[in-house]
């Protein structure tokens, strides 16, 4: 039996005196593929940002490997629990500027071989390293943004509607990579999605409505 990687205990979040999340509690086990769905404004993205420590809960507690996430040094925690945005913004000038950034922040030399290997896994070749971020499509940007989170080993991937703005082909490439990472590399995935087909793929499914969990299903 896998150990719990996350335990969420009665998470509440308020902003501008509005209750965005109410009494959210669930457990995520190592290696699970958790899919989270719900209408717009149901608090899915906020929940993911709280788990990523980009926002702080108003009350409640989240344990990561049985330790309160607020006791981790934020930068170290975020290297283990990697958040990927819905509409990512690439920075710098080239694709390489983005892929070398995770190395810069760890004060390590850029591993070009690893970057090319990951580019190829999402259907892009080595020539993309030198491409300007303004010369690549939205789907290619999303793929680059996703592998930017994967250059170093990560325990958890938090995916915020990463395929929602993509065409069928690009969505499929991203989906295939997510399944591979989850099944072959045992990376725990929390995936917010509006797509019913993607939602069904979860081994642990959560439906949210108005900031609360409406339904939860474990495989």
């Amino acid at each position: 039996m896998s150990q719990p990687i996350f335990t969420l205990q009665d998470i509440n979040f308020e902003a501008d005196q509005k209750k965005i999340l109410q009494h959210i509690s669930f457990t995520v086990k190592q290696g699970e593929l958790v899919t989270i769905t719900g209408p717009s404004g149901s608090g899915k993205s906020t929940l993911l940002k709280i788990i990523a420590t980009l926002l702080s809960e108003t009350s409640g507690k989240i344990l990561f490997h049985d330790k309160d996430i607020n006791q981790y040094e934020p930068t170290e925690y975020r290297k283990l629990v990697s958040y990927c945005f819905q509409t990512p913004s690439l920075f710098g000038d080239t694709v390489q500027d983005n892929l070398s950034f995770p190395y810069e922040i760890r004060h390590k030399e850029f591993d070009q071989k690893r970057a090319i290997h990951l580019l190829e896994r999402v259907g892009l070749d080595a020539s993309y390293l030198d491409k300007s971020i303004h010369d690549i499509s939205g789907g290619e940007k999303q793929r680059v943004a996703l592998i930017r989170n994967l250059l170093f080993e990560t325990d958890v991937l938090l995916l915020d509607e990463v395929t929602s703005a993509l065409d069928h082909e690009n969505s499929q490439i991203i989906r295939d990579l997510i399944f591979q990472l989850n099944q072959e590399e045992n990376i725990t995935v929390l995936w917010v999605t509006h797509n019913p087909d993607e939602f069904k793929e979860g081994t642990h499914q959560i439906k949210m409505v108005e900031g609360q969990i409406q339904e939860e299903y474990h495989e």
Binding site: A52, C84, S89, F101
Partner: peptide, 11 residues
């Protein structure tokens, strides 16, 4: 957005 992305990467 870029600052948020960098923070999310552990910067």
């Amino acid at each position: 957005q870029q600052v948020l992305e960098k923070l999310a990467l552990g910067a």
